[in-house]
Write a protein that binds this DNA or RNA. Structure first.
Length: 808
RNA sequence: GGGCAAGUGGCGGAAUUGGUAUACGCGCUAGUCUUAGGAACUAGUUCUUCACGGAUUGAGGGUUCGAGUCCCUCCUUGCCCACCA
C-alpha cells in the first residue's frame, strides 16, 4: 500500500487528516449542526439510508458507499436551505444476532450492544451528518413496544375490499354474533390482517428448528448440512395479499428505478384469467368437479388431460381410495433436481369431462402443479404449453390440435367470469426463535385468543437460561413455565418486523404515547429520498410499503407511500471481482483506509469509483488519487491565504468565472441525479484549472476559490470546514449558502468545433458561437482545403457550436 | 427456462436530443528535486507506424452527411426470479 507522506516537523502545508477530521467531528457534535427541527418553517427534506444490521464482522468498504451518498445528498440539501432530517439507527432482532450470540456464548442483547458499538465507531470516523439524537434500535423496549402495537392493530383489523381499506374487526363481529364463541373466533380469523393458520415450513430435525428458504441449500441446512424436510406447522401470517393491488398501483406514484418496480410487480405476480370447473365421472367420492385457473381460456379446445397437485381435494378427500397415490407421492423429492423431472400418476377410474366436446379426459397427479397457486390444478394443453407437452410426451398423452377461440365467446357459452390471481403469498410472521419481538397475544385455556391492551405493552422478552432452539419446533419461550402458563404466544416476530416502520419512528423518536405523533407526521410526512441496496426489493421494501398503507388506512400516516424516491447503490466487490467476504479473504476495512488517507479522501474515492448504482471492484490503490487531490486543495488554500495577508485586491479571472459557473451547475445536477463520480471528476478538473492559472503567475480571487470549496463541502466536509474557517469565515461551511450557477457567465466567446468531410474528422476551427454560418463555412473550407481540392461539395451541414460537415 | 442490466485503453470509468470517443483518476514511462524514493512535482501515455497516415467503443449487418449512442442478428458476462398454469 502506498503511504501518505509523513508529517515532517516544520511542514505546515502537510494536511494532517487525523487532527482535522476529529477536530471537526467533535465540533459538529458539540454544536449540534445536524439536528433536525420538527415544525421548522424551512422546507423539509427527509434523507434516509437503510439502517444496518450490526453483525459481528463490522463494516467493510462496501457498506459506507450508500451512507456517504446519502450524506452528500443531505449536505447539499442542507446548504440549499432545507430543514434536513438525516437519522441513523440499528436493526438488530433476528437470526444473525442470535447465531452470533450462540457461537460466542453471550446473550443476544450483549452481542447487539457490542456490535452496535463497533458500528458506531466505524460510522463516526467517516464524518456522516446524522442527527444522532433520533437514534433507534429495534430491540429497545421503547421501540418494540410500538412494533407490537402495530401488530395488534393488524390483528384487530380486516380488509374491506369494497372500500379498499382496512377497517376495525369489530365491524364484522355483529355479522357473526349468532355463532358460538369458538365458531366466531374461527370465522373472524379468516379476516384478520394478522391471522393464525397452517403452512408448510422447512424443518430441520438435527437443528431442532424451522429454517428460512435462504438457509436451505439443496435440501440441506446451510449450517451443518443436515437434511431439511417440509412440515406443516401452526404459523402467524400477515395478509399482505389483500394489499396486492394497491402495492402495484402505488408504484406509479413513486420515483423508483423502473427495473425495481418491475421486480416488485413480478413478485406480486398479478395475472388475469378465467376459472373453470371440469365435471367428474367415475369413482371420485364426494368430489364432483375439478376447478382450474387458466390465463389461456382461448386454448380450451386443445385440452387433453387435467393435472392436479398431490394435495388436491380429489386425493386428500378420498384417502382410502387413493392411498396408493398418496404413498407414491411421498417419495417425490423437493430438491431442485427432483423438481425438474416431471412425475405423474394417473388417477384410475376417474375422468374429467370436457365442457364443450364432452370427451373423457384422464387426470394425473403430478409434481409440476403447485398446490398453493390457483386451485392446485391445471388444464393440460400439450399442443400449446411447453410444460404440458413435456409431461404428455413422458406419459404418452394424446396431443390435440388447438383451435384458438375468442375468450369472449367462451365466456358467454360457459358462463365464465374474468378473475385475477396473484403469485404473492401471505407473509409468514412467526419464528420459533428467541431473539425477536414477542407476539402480544394470550391463548386462553378454552382456545380463545386475547390480544394484549396498549397499556400492557411492551410485552418484554423474558430472561431465559438458554436462547438456543429447544428442538421441538417451538421457540425457547415455550420452555419457560411461567410464560407458557400465562398463555403467551411462544413464537416471536420475524426479523423484518422492526424494519417495516422504523422510518416513521425517526420523525418522533422519543414519543411515549404513539409510534409517531401527529405533529411530527404532519410535518415530515414521508421519506423524500431513500438510499439502500437492491437486495431488499422483494422483502423489506415491499413489507414497509404494505405496513405504511395499512397505517395510512388507520389514520396514523398521511401518505399512501413511505418513500417518495428511492436510489439503489451497487455492491462493492473485492479486487478479485467477487463478493466481499471472509471466505474469499478479500475484505477491506474502511477504518484502515481512513486511518491512512483520511475521511475526506476515503469519502471522495467511494463516490469517484464509478456510477452509484453499478457493482464495482474495490482497489485501495486508487485512494491515493483523491488523497493527492485533498493535498493539492490544502496547498492551494495556503496560496490564497498568503495573498490575503498581502491584502491585495485580486480581480476575478474571466476564464475561470465561466468554468466555475459550469462546475456549479454540473456538481449540483450530478448530486441531485446521483452521478457522484462525475461530480467528483468535475471538481478535479476545476482544481486543475485553478492550478494552471496559478502556475501562469496569475492570482486567484478568494471568492472564486470559496465557491469551489463550497462545491467540495458535501464530499469532503472536514477539509472544507477547516479552510472555510481559516479564510476568516465565522460559521461552519454546513450553514453556508450553496452557490447558484449564473448562466450568463457560462457563455464562452470561442468554441472549438470539428470539421468533417464525408463523416471523417479532418480538422477543427475556433469560432465564436454567435458567428454567422457563412463565415464559419468559408473559414472551415480554408482549413481543410487540401481535402477539397478538385471536388464538388454536394451538401454542407453546420450545427452551431458542435460541428461542420461537408459531403462530397 | 423467464426477466433485467451491461460489454469503451494495462485498470476503474467519461461522453447532453445521434455531432471532435477515450474526460477524470489509478498504473506505467521519462525527467526535476533528493544520501535515497515506495514521497512530491513536471511532461508523456488507445493501438499501429520512423513519419505522413491508418485503425478503434464484444462480433456482423442496417439507417444517417455523421453511430459508443438508433434498428436487426449473434456472442459474452453479471444479477434477480425460477414449473405461478
Amino acid at each position: 500500500m502506498a503511504q501518505v507522506k509523513k508529517n515532517t516537523s516544520q511542514d505546515n502545508q502537510f494536511y494532517d487528516h487525523k487532527k482535522i477530521d476529529s477536530k471537526w467531528q467533535k465540533k459538529w457534535e458539540k454544536d449540534q449542526v445536524y439536528k433536525a427541527t420538527t415544525g421548522s418553517k424551512k422546507q423539509k427534506m427527509y434523507v434516509l439510508s437503510m439502517f444496518p444490521y450490526p453483525s459481528g464482522a463490522g463494516l467493510h468498504v462496501g457498506h459506507p458507499r450508500g451512507y456517504i451518498a446519502a450524506d452528500v445528498y443531505a449536505r447539499l440539501k442542507r446548504m440549499q436551505g432545507f430543514n434536513v432530517l438525516h437519522p441513523m439507527g440499528y436493526d438488530a432482532f433476528g437470526l444473525p444476532a442470535e447465531q452470533y450470540a450462540i457461537q460466542n456464548q453471550v446473550h443476544p442483547r450483549e452481542a447487539v450492544l457490542k456490535n452496535v458499538k463497533t458500528y458506531e465507531k466505524q460510522l463516526e470516523i467517516i464524518g456522516l451528518s446524522y442527527d444522532w439524537s433520533r437514534k433507534i434500535n429495534t430491540t429497545d423496549e421503547d421501540y418494540y413496544k410500538w412494533t407490537q402495537w402495530i401488530f395488534l392493530k393488524l390483528y384487530n383489523h380486516y380488509y374491506d375490499h369494497k372500500a379498499k381499506k382496512a377497517k376495525p374487526i369489530s365491524e364484522l363481529e355483529r355479522k357473526f354474533a349468532h355463532l358460538s364463541q369458538a365458531d366466531k373466533d374461527r370465522e373472524l380469523m379468516k379476516y384478520r390482517l394478522a391471522y393464525e393458520g397452517f403452512s408448510e415450513v422447512n424443518w430441520c430435525e438435527e437443528l431442532g428448528t424451522v429454517l428460512a428458504n435462504d438457509e436451505v441449500i439443496d435440501g440441506k441446512s446451510e449450517r451443518g448440512g443436515y437434511p431439511v424436510v417440509k412440515k406443516m406447522m401452526r404459523q402467524w401470517f400477515l395478509r399482505i395479499t389483500d394489499y396486492a393491488d394497491r402495492l402495484i398501483s402505488g408504484l406509479d406514484t413513486v420515483d423508483f428505478d423502473e427495473s425495481l418496480k418491475t421486480v416488485q410487480k413480478n413478485w406480486i405476480g398479478k395475472s388475469f384469467g378465467h376459472e373453470l370447473e371440469f365435471k367428474l365421472e367415475g369413482e371420485s367420492g364426494e368430489v364432483k368437479g375439478v376447478k382450474i385457473f387458466t390465463t389461456r381460456i382461448d386454448t380450451l379446445s386443445g385440452v387433453t388431460f387435467l393435472a392436479i397437485s398431490k394435495d388436491h381435494d380429489l386425493i386428500s378427500k378420498n384417502p382410502g381410495k387413493f392411498s396408493n397415490i398418496i404413498n407414491q407421492t411421498k417419495s417425490w423429492g423437493t430438491d431442485e433436481k427432483d423438481i425438474k423431472i416431471k412425475r405423474g400418476i394417473i388417477v384410475d377410474n376417474v375422468y374429467a369431462i370436457h365442457p364443450d366436446n364432452k370427451s373423457k379426459l384422464p387426470i394425473y397427479v403430478t409434481n409440476y402443479v403447485l398446490s398453493d397457486y390457483g386451485f392446485g390444478s391445471v388444464m393440460g394443453v400439450p399442443d400449446m404449453d411447453e410444460r404440458d407437452a413435456d409431461f404428455a410426451s413422458v406419459y404418452n398423452i394424446r396431443v390435440k390440435e388447438t383451435i384458438i377461440e375468442k375468450p369472449e365467446s367462451i365466456e358467454k357459452r360457459l358462463g365464465l367470469k374474468k378473475v385475477f390471481k396473484y403469485k404473492i403469498r401471505d407473509a409468514v410472521f412467526a419464528r420459533q426463535r428467541y431473539w425477536g419481538e414477542p407476539i402480544p397475544l394470550k391463548h386462553e385455556s378454552d382456545g380463545h385468543i386475547t390480544p394484549l391492551t396498549e397499556k400492557e405493552l411492551p410485552l418484554k422478552l423474558p430472561k431465559v437460561s438458554s436462547y438456543e432452539p429447544i428442538g421441538s419446533g417451538d421457540s425457547p419461550l415455550a420452555g419457560i413455565k411461567s410464560w407458557v402458563k400465562s398463555g403467551y404466544e411462544t413464537n416471536t416476530m420475524p426479523g423484518w418486523a422492526g424494519s417495516s416502520w422504523y422510518f416513521l419512528r425517526y420523525m418522533d423518536a422519543h414519543n411515549k404515547t404513539a409510534p409517531v405523533g401527529k405533529k411530527a407526521i404532519d410535518y415530515w410526512k414521508q421519506v423524500d429520498m431513500y438510499i439502500g441496496g437492491r437486495e431488499h426489493t422483494t422483502g423489506h421494501l415491499l413489507y414497509s410499503r404494505f405496513w405504511h398503507k395499512f397505517l395510512f388506512d388507520i389514520g396514523l400516516t398521511v401518505t399512501e407511500e413511505p418513500f417518495k424516491a428511492l436510489r439503489n447503490q451497487g455492491m462493492i466487490l473485492g479486487s478479485d471481482n467477487q463478493k466481499m467476504s471472509k471466505r474469499w479473504g478479500n475484505v477491506v476495512n474502511p477504518d484502515d483506509c481512513i486511518n491512512t488517507y483520511g475521511a475526506d479522501a476515503f469519502r471522495m474515492y467511494e463516490m469517484f469509483l464509478g456510477p452509484f448504482d453499478s457493482s464495482l471492484p474495490w482497489s485501495t490503490d486508487g485512494i491515493i488519487g483523491t488523497r493527492r487531490f485533498i493535498d493539492r486543495v490544502w496547498r492551494l488554500s495556503y496560496v490564497i491565504e498568503s495573498q490575503n495577508l498581502q491584502n491585495k485586491k485580486i480581480k476575478t479571472n474571466p476564464q475561470l468565472i465561466s468554468k466555475i459557473n459550469k462546475t456549479i451547475k454540473k456538481v449540483t445536477d450530478d448530486i441531485e441525479g446521483f452521478a457522484f463520480n462525475t461530480a467528483v471528476s468535475s471538481l478535479m478538473i476545476l482544481l486543475n484549472d485553478f492550478e494552471e492559472i496559478q502556475q501562469k503567475g496569475e492570482q486567484i480571487n478568494q471568492n472564486d476559490f470559496l465557491d469551489f470549496i463550497k462545491l467540495l463541502a458535501p464530499f469532503a466536509p472536514h477539509i472544507t470546514d477547516e479552510i472555510w474557517i481559516n479564510l476568516k469565515n465565522k460559521n461552519s461551511i454546513n450553514v453556508a449558502t450553496w452557490p447558484v450557477c449564473d448562466s450568463k457567465k457560462v457563455l464562452e466567446d470561442v468554441v472549438k468545433i470539428g470539421i468533417q468531410i464525408n463523416g471523417k474528422l479532418r480538422g477543427d476551427i475556433q469560432v465564436s458561437p454567435d458567428s454567422l454560418e457563412k463565415e464559419v463555412v468559408e473559414e472551415a473550407k480554408k482549413i481543410v482545403k487540401n481535402h477539397l481540392e478538385g471536388k464538388v461539395i454536394k451538401k454542407t451541414i453546420y450545427i452551431k457550436g458542435k460541428i461542420i460537415s461537408f459531403v462530397l
